[in-house]
């Protein structure tokens, strides 16, 4: 059983909602990444989404875009991200890590090479935002190397397509809670709840809900109907400007602790 499947199985057994924080690799600083990942786990993260910086993140809002720009300005590339996952794995062999990003860095790195290096580093899954189901043939080497392809589903996804996504979903299905970019502020909980309930009844993979989760309150509302909650822009925003790795770690823990508590109180 893969690390992602194991983690969701134990969450289910314990009746807990998963917490999936997202950070951009290389922001607020390259030195802080591995320490931050451990801090996220200590503060209650069940799975880590690690953003691979890309110069043209079309589906992301300004917060994550700027984090990407800062990381790129510091010279961060896919090779660094894989190295950091490898370092993280030296002390943590349980927490699943999913790389989130765009296709071009992987395409340029080479699919075969990326798949082998990512698997060796201890990456568990890959979410490539601009690679929908229809274009996924190129990801075959990733699957062969044992990496889970995490799929997105959206409020705009048509029923027939949703059925298809539910069928192929592996690891978990990431439900984008509205038809916007990451970090936007709108969220109609009731609407999301009924759609997620529908997806959960059809997909064998667990459903994580993200896009627009900002704090303990919004996380708790989503925890009522999702297997896991993804929290990205709000965390990246909080980390921005942390001068040292210690400060970044402290900020991450402060930010995540009340969210973890709210999820567990649910």
């Amino acid at each position: 059983m893969s690390r992602i499947d194991q983690r969701f199985a134990s969450l289910k057994a314990a009746g807990r909602t998963g917490l999936i924080p997202f950070i951009t690799a290389g922001d607020p600083s390259p030195e802080a990444v591995v320490a931050l990942m451990h801090a996220l786990v200590e503060a209650g993260a069940d799975l880590i989404e690690l953003g691979v910086p890309f110069s043209d993140p079309m589906a992301d809002g300004p917060v994550i875009q700027h984090a990407s720009e800062r990381a790129i300005a510091r010279g961060v590339g896919l090779g660094d991200v894989l190295r950091w996952v490898g370092e993280f794995r030296q002390r943590d062999t349980d927490t699943p890590v999913v790389l989130m990003g765009y296709l071009n860095p992987v395409e340029i790195h080479g699919y075969e090479a990326f798949a082998a290096e990512a698997a060796t580093a201890g990456v568990d899954g890959v979410l490539l935002v601009d690679c929908p189901l229809e274009e996924s043939a190129v990801l075959e080497p990733l699957r062969a190397a044992g990496l889970k392809t995490i799929r997105l589903a959206a409020p705009t996804t048509a029923p027939a397509r949703m059925a298809q996504l539910c069928e192929v979903a592996e690891g978990f299905l990431y439900y984008v809670s509205f038809a916007g970019i990451t970090g936007a502020g709108r969220l109609s909980t009731r609407d999301i709840a009924s759609r997620v309930a529908d997806i959960r009844s059809r997909a064998s993979a667990p459903v994580a809900v993200g896009f627009g989760v900002r704090d303990a309150q919004s996380a708790k509302e989503i925890a009522a109907f999702a297997d896991a909650v993804v929290i990205g822009s709000a965390l990246v925003e909080r980390l921005d400007g942390a001068g040292t790795a210690d400060e970044a770690v402290a900020r991450a823990k402060d930010f995540l602790a009340p969210i973890r508590a709210a999820l567990d109180a649910h």
Binding site: M58, A59, E134, E135, A154, T157, A158, R161
Partner: peptide, 20 residues
């Protein structure tokens, strides 16, 4: 019919854009 010119073209977009 998939919008491809040989290897090129296609629809490399986020899920939210597939419906529009």
């Amino acid at each position: 019919p998939h919008g491809r010119f040989g290897q090129f073209g296609g629809q490399y977009v986020a899920e939210t854009l597939m419906a529009p």
